[in-house]
Structures are given as structure tokens and as C-alpha cells.
Nucleic acid binder design. Structure first.
Lengths: 162, 162
DNA sequence: CAATTATTGTTATATTATAACAATACATTT
DNA sequence: AAATGTATTGTTATAATATAACAATAATTG
């Protein structure tokens, strides 16, 4: 299992994350005959603004600034859209959303989340799938979605403890 | 990885689940010098009323019936208390709580959850811990808590599809 | 262009959770 | 038992998260 983004490396080139995410989004929308409208693109950019999961209500002010309607349904619709296409993940325990690092290959939501700085680094869980499938199969359970959250303290926050 | 309770076996002896949970709770409170007050015991019983995770607000009517105050803080306090002692787990994606099958041995929250009938069966993930620790260690991440949710359809609900 | 569908705007409200402080119950010491 | 301190519960208010329902507009298709 590997980390598949650089979230915990504070000097990574974050513009690269964002532009990559947008390129992915455009391609995936195209493939699926969906439209990446201005609102959806803005929400995707905002979610990708950092590697810290953002709540829906944290996005609303920026939508207002950009001249869009900024009532909750607007942002929830965009978040649902992006989520359905696998472009973002929802972190259940935080009620917050974060960009997906590898949307071209649909995969379960799995993150290491620092409870101090709130950074979420997506991790790759393909080597765990066999175990999950085994337990599911042994109970006749049809596995359809996974939410994996590893909570704790990242290296930086451990280092800066008093 | 194994299932550690009988949640998906609809004819298991559920009274046994509840009485076992209460015995565990009493012992664990004793060990920790905490009190299993009537409200806390009732909330634990209610959460253990089935293997379906229950939201905080679903518990309030029963508290009222039993003659307790039934404002939200009452139930959230009891839930927090039980959660801190490891007697219940919170399912992040459902904002709901479910009994812990094995509270004598503190362990991560890990469930298979049927999206149709809402039953949650706790699973044992000890064989996955090595993988989780490996990825955490490789990033200097101090792992402190886990939320593992496997969502899908249980055997019964698959069988009864049209 | 007309008809249809998808998207967005808007208002209202439902659901989940916590803050803050008062009152009561319990435990400890004397 | 009375006095004190601590833990628990009661109470009111409000914060934070999310959705329902319908109207208006924009995009797409025939």
C-alpha cells in the first residue's frame, strides 16, 4: 500500500496537483458525456485548493465571490456531481470533501488524515482488496463501496509538538 | 479477517448480544472507575437493540418514554461516554452508532454495512494492521484511530431483489 | 424554432451536533 | 451528618450539515 499523492510533503508543487486534477476532470466528463460547468469547475478547484478536506459550507463564500448563487444546494449539487464521477472523495468522519488523486482509475476512498493539521493523503489500497473481498465473499456480501480512514498525526505535526 | 458477530445471521440469539454487551460494559466501567448510570445503560441497550446503526435523534423518544430528559445533549453525552470507553462505534458515513462486539480488546472500527437493510456487521481487521502500520510508518505518520467501512448488499437483501 | 432535458436559482426546512450555564446527585473529608 | 468538591444531568439556545420542492434559465436535440 502506497501513498499516491504528496499531501504530507509540504513543499510539493501544488499547482501541479490542481492542473492535473482539472485535466483529469475534463477528460472524465468528456468520456461520460457530462459537462464540467463553471460552478463545477470552481468547486473542483476549491476542493483542490489544498489537501485539507473542506466542508460544503466552507466553499460557499468563494462561490458568492465568483458571482454565483451561494445557497447550499448549489455547492451540494456540484459536490455530488464530482463525487459521482470519482473526482472527489468524501471523508465521512469529517463531513468534508477532498480531491481524488487518481480519478482515471475508479477506486475506494482511502486516506491518512492528520487530526492536527487536517491534511488528508490518499493511499492506495489495492493490496488490501483481496482481504476485503475475502471477508465479503465469505458472508455473501456484495461489496460496492469502501471508506477507509486512518487518523493520526503526520510527520510535521509530530515534529512540532511541544 | 473474520466477522466477529452474527449481525447478518437473522436468526441469531440477539438477547445474547445485548446481555453480553451489558456485562462487558459493567466490567469496563468498573475497571476504568466510570459509572454506568441509568441513562448510559439505557442508551447502550438502545444502540444494541439491533445491529442497525442508530442516529442520536432516533434514541431520544425512548429516553423520553423512560422518563429522562430527552434533549440532544443528554443522548450525545451518553454516546460520547460509551464511545470513549470503546463500547460503541460511530459509523462516520451514516452519522450513526452501533454496539461494539468486542470492547474488552480495544480495536479499530471496521464494519460491513448493508446499504439496503442498514445492518452493520463488525469485522476483525487484525490481519490488515500490518499493512496499515507499514504505510503509516513509511510516512512518519502516527496512526491513532481507524474507520473502516465496507458498504454493499448483504446476502439476505441480495436474495430478495426483484 | 419548438420541445425536451439539464442545470442553476431560490426559499424553506430537515437533520445532526454543540455551547453555555443551572440544577441535582454523588463522593470525600471532616 | 454537614460541608465541600466533582460528576452527571437538565435546560435553553443555537451552530453546523444537508435536502426537499419548485421556479427560472440554459443547453441540447429533433
Amino acid at each position: 500500500m502506497l501513498e499516491i499523492n504528496d499531501a504530507f510533503n509540504s513543499d510539493h508543487n501544488h499547482d501541479h496537483c490542481v492542473s492535473g486534477a482539472l485535466d483529469n476532470a475534463k477528460a472524465i466528463c468528456q468520456e461520460n458525456g457530462q459537462r464540467l460547468t463553471p460552478i463545477r469547475e470552481l468547486v473542483l478547484r476549491l476542493v483542490w485548493g489544498s489537501h485539507k478536506p473542506l466542508g460544503a459550507y466552507e466553499l460557499l463564500p468563494a462561490l458568492a465571490e465568483a458571482g454565483f448563487n451561494s445557497a447550499p444546494p448549489t455547492v451540494y449539487r456540484a459536490l455530488d456531481f464530482l463525487h459521482q464521477l470519482g473526482l472527489i472523495h468524501k471523508i465521512g468522519s469529517l463531513n468534508a470533501f477532498v480531491g481524488c488523486s487518481n480519478p482515471e482509475h475508479p477506486h475506494p476512498s482511502a486516506f491518512m488524515i492528520c487530526t492536527e493539521c487536517k491534511t488528508a493523503a490518499e493511499i492506495e489500497t489495492s493490496e488490501l482488496q483481496a482481504s476485503f473481498n475475502r471477508v465479503a465473499n465469505s458472508h455473501g456480501f456484495q461489496l460496492e463501496e469502501e471508506n477507509i480512514e486512518l487518523l493520526g498525526l503526520c510527520k510535521d505535526c509530530l515534529g512540532s509538538e511541544s
